[in-house]
Design a protein around this nucleic acid. Sequence first.
DNA 1: TGAATACATGAGCGCATATTCATATAAAGC
DNA 2: GCTTTATATGAATATGCGCTCATGTATTCA
Lengths: 121, 121
Amino acid sequence: MKMELGPIEKCISDVIHEDVVNKVKEKMHDEQIFYELAELFKVFGDSTRIKILWALDEAEMCVCDIASLLSMSQSAISHQLRVLRQANLVKNRKEGKVVYYSLSDEHVKLIFNQGLAHVNE
Amino acid sequence: MKMELGPIEKCISDVIHEDVVNKVKEKMHDEQIFYELAELFKVFGDSTRIKILWALDEAEMCVCDIASLLSMSQSAISHQLRVLRQANLVKNRKEGKVVYYSLSDEHVKLIFNQGLAHVNE
DNA sequence: TGAATACATGAGCGCATATTCATATAAAGC
DNA sequence: GCTTTATATGAATATGCGCTCATGTATTCA
């Protein structure tokens, strides 16, 4: 938000009343939240990760289980699990040399369902 | 899903029972839905588009209004509005030479709220 | 101790994408 | 008709990202 305004600035249309402008500007002021939201949805924006989450919604499983079920390499899955971990969407538990992954909270399902509702409208 | 399986294939862990495996495999069979879901979330995965949707949640407005409020070029906004249009997240209405945009349905808000719930947990 | 297995990770490649710039279209006013 | 304003869009560039390949770490077992 550090660009200088061009001639566009004088183009606030008449339907936009001043209170609306101020309200939106106030919302825009809190930039952090936009980046966090976008960052979260970016994680959902990949079919491999969607598949992983969808599988984990069915049962806790280890890395090689997921790789096998998705017919993808262990490395690819491991990389994606790291992304999901950093977004706090999955948690893991180590048992010997095997690492079991599972969903970390309920939000995943809820976000999915809203997404599905839109896709299937 | 067209890769040949390596030695990973023999690594289905013991916690995964056969019925779970079949259930997940059956879910994975319907590949289309994963791509559609990922495609939808990809649209939400950009802070500029998030800001646009957030602004439109407050009021219907034209392209230059949005550009002004977000301090971005008209071109950049126009490109992003096309993405949002193609995802059926916004609709538009032409009045003279001005094009007014607004949210196309309720899902946007709902998806946002679920995202926020996760971010603020 | 050495081999095998499960997982993580850094480098690199190829591809998608967000923005800018230049330009096109279209409506309004002179 | 000409100019200005609002919007759309194609090309180009720069950045980000997903996968592979190679390798590292940790655990188990012989």
